[in-house]
Simulated assay, not measured.
Amino acid sequence: MQPDIETNRLILRPFRLSDGDRVAQLAGDKAIADMTANIPHPYKPEMAVDWIKTHEAQFVTRKGIIYAITLKGDDDIIGTVSLPKLEHGLGVLGYWLGVPYWGQGITLEASQGLIHYCRMHLGLKQLQVMHLVGNERSQSVIKKLGIPYKGNITLRMQGAEREVRLYQLIL
């Protein structure tokens, strides 16, 4: 069973099917969809539930790990942090945070907690992260995590060719 991860201000916990409405509400914000590779707009609760249903298998097979971000003392999710791809010691970091929670260092803290856990328990040895060109908030998180920039690449996402910045770190 996927354990909770505790940081100074946060509890990272597995998602529950009952989180679907909240995921759709937060991730469905156009500001989130515009800056992520695979969150559509609009984002419906049943889409969120279908996504949540994939999490346990990823964790059990050790091919990925996905957490809901919550503030200590409040079980409502405010975002997510994950390694949706984890293979041969290489993890690809992903995250989004509800707009009302931006600018408080939450994504950085959640990412640090997840990275530490995965290094200790899941054999994480190398970290990769990408963000769309123009997503300065994500760029700031990555810089604070100390992950070096490797270059830009073009990926097809949400029906269009999009330029992303790629970062990679050997841990």
Results as ranks from 00 to 15, higher is better:
8 N>S: 14
10 L>T: 08
14 P>R: 00
19 D>G: 07
20 G>I: 08
21 D>S: 14
22 R>D: 08
24 A>W: 05
25 Q>K: 15
26 L>V: 13
27 A>R: 11
28 G>N: 09
30 K>P: 07
31 A>V: 11
32 I>W: 15
33 A>L: 07
36 T>C: 02
36 T>E: 02
37 A>E: 10
45 P>G: 04
48 A>S: 10
49 V>W: 00
49 V>G: 01
50 D>R: 09
51 W>L: 01
52 I>W: 02
53 K>T: 03
53 K>A: 09
56 E>P: 03
58 Q>H: 15
58 Q>A: 14
59 F>C: 06
61 T>R: 14
64 G>I: 09
66 I>N: 14
66 I>K: 08
69 I>F: 14
72 K>P: 12
73 G>S: 04
74 D>Y: 07
74 D>M: 05
75 D>H: 08
76 D>L: 01
77 I>Q: 04
77 I>S: 05
79 G>N: 10
79 G>D: 13
79 G>C: 05
79 G>H: 09
80 T>F: 03
81 V>K: 06
81 V>M: 06
82 S>F: 06
83 L>S: 02
85 K>P: 01
85 K>D: 12
85 K>F: 04
85 K>T: 08
87 E>C: 06
88 H>I: 07
89 G>Y: 01
89 G>L: 03
90 L>R: 03
90 L>M: 08
90 L>H: 08
91 G>T: 05
92 V>K: 10
93 L>R: 10
95 Y>E: 05
96 W>C: 00
98 G>R: 05
98 G>S: 07
100 P>D: 12
102 W>E: 14
104 Q>I: 04
104 Q>K: 15
105 G>S: 13
107 T>F: 06
108 L>A: 03
108 L>K: 04
109 E>D: 15
110 A>F: 12
110 A>G: 14
114 L>Q: 03
114 L>Y: 09
117 Y>F: 14
117 Y>N: 12
120 M>K: 00
120 M>V: 11
123 G>V: 00
123 G>K: 07
124 L>E: 05
125 K>T: 08
127 L>Y: 12
128 Q>R: 14
129 V>L: 09
130 M>G: 06
131 H>Y: 04
135 N>S: 10
136 E>Q: 05
139 Q>F: 10
140 S>Q: 10
143 K>W: 03
143 K>E: 15
143 K>Q: 15
145 L>K: 13
146 G>Y: 13
149 Y>H: 04
149 Y>I: 06
151 G>N: 04
151 G>Q: 06
152 N>A: 05
154 T>N: 15
155 L>F: 01
155 L>G: 07
156 R>A: 11
157 M>R: 02
157 M>H: 00
157 M>V: 06
158 Q>L: 14
161 E>K: 11
161 E>M: 15
166 L>G: 07
166 L>S: 09
